[in-house]
Design a binder for these strands. Sequence first.
DNA 1: ATCCAACTACTGCAAGTTGCAGTAGATCAT
DNA 2: ATGATCTACTGCAACTTGCAGTAGTTGGAT
Lengths: 211, 211
Amino acid sequence: MPARLTTSSYAVLGLLAIQPWSAYELAQQATRSLRFAWPKSERLLYAEPKKLVEHGLATVANEQTGGRTRAVYTITDAGRTELRTWMTTSPQPPALEAEALVRLLFAENGDIDDLLAALTKLADDATALREQVATINTSYLDGGHPFPDRAHLSVLFATFQLEFFDLVVRWVDFAKAEIERWPSTDGLGITAGTESILQLIKEGRSVLDPV
Amino acid sequence: MPARLTTSSYAVLGLLAIQPWSAYELAQQATRSLRFAWPKSERLLYAEPKKLVEHGLATVANEQTGGRTRAVYTITDAGRTELRTWMTTSPQPPALEAEALVRLLFAENGDIDDLLAALTKLADDATALREQVATINTSYLDGGHPFPDRAHLSVLFATFQLEFFDLVVRWVDFAKAEIERWPSTDGLGITAGTESILQLIKEGRSVLDPV
DNA sequence: ATCCAACTACTGCAAGTTGCAGTAGATCAT
DNA sequence: ATGATCTACTGCAACTTGCAGTAGTTGGAT
């Protein structure tokens, strides 16, 4: 009895539906797009295709490249059917992991500069990730992308990432401005800034909109 | 030799820095705030405080409540020092898990309605989560919140979640409008919509801004 | 011509994490 | 009086990660 299929299994199956890949190539490809919605380790990307083969959803061919073999995985008809069925099921809610925000939540245990440094790191990370997404996707414009007929999907997918990373950067600016008005990290309670934020929340307005 | 400390350990230590809790209460509290930046299972929230005790960062007291005991964990001075040190370290980049976006990336394996349903689910989830964050935080206004002196942190933290969930809802609207112009999910390549999105990306503008 | 770095292509394993089932006392409404 | 829900956990299998290790290939610098 093979291990059961997880969302990660279907994600790899989705990559195999594009074309056959080796596990190494799957890991490379996942770095370019999949990881922005489904961040998984390289190790797992080596294990998943084996599981797909066990389930009959993919086949493996050992290609010879000089004195070395590499395993190339190809999706089967059963794999395409299984993937099609999965596409009709309901996705899990989104989950965001952001250590920098944990630092904010517990900021009273450090000083203002620790908090500002953590937020700066968050904005820097977001800027770097934004850059990666933009570079990969604008390559569709000059024909430098390997799968031109998937442009409609990749580009729409990328818009979410770009908006998200932009939001992070803009929010960090806002948060830093707020924090710089604090005399300390600890025990402030409802400050003037907190008060006006709460007012905006009650009115259903954005704190990032220009006044 | 006890197991090493993870970010989850420090997150729990951060909760213990507020006040002593039982593992059950830690799990409840984490549901209210921590999970939006560090989503961890209830099971782990039961295991982490034990690890903290092994490290001398917390102590445990077995309280009697009728015929039953409950373990209440309290942070030690060593725990506060350790937490303070952690606050000076650099946080990991953010990571977003969104199964609905995986459906978009591999949408060619399903039909338009599958994709629209997945995005609707994403927007519904975001709306529900937004509502939870708003409810918890506006309770500061009527004094209904248990930790009023942490309002400045909780509310600033919450602004990120609110902006994020709003973004998801607005982006889903945009994405649905785009997808409804597609004749199918498969092989479209660079559509007119894709073209204008790519143009906006090149100009560094947002796809969600009103024209 | 050779040597080192970087890239390709994996595997093993310990440790971290999750989901789920199970146990059991306490509380509250019907 | 009883069933539902809440409190308060534990055990365990399965899932996932990080890291070290192995080894052949390629390309540039010396």
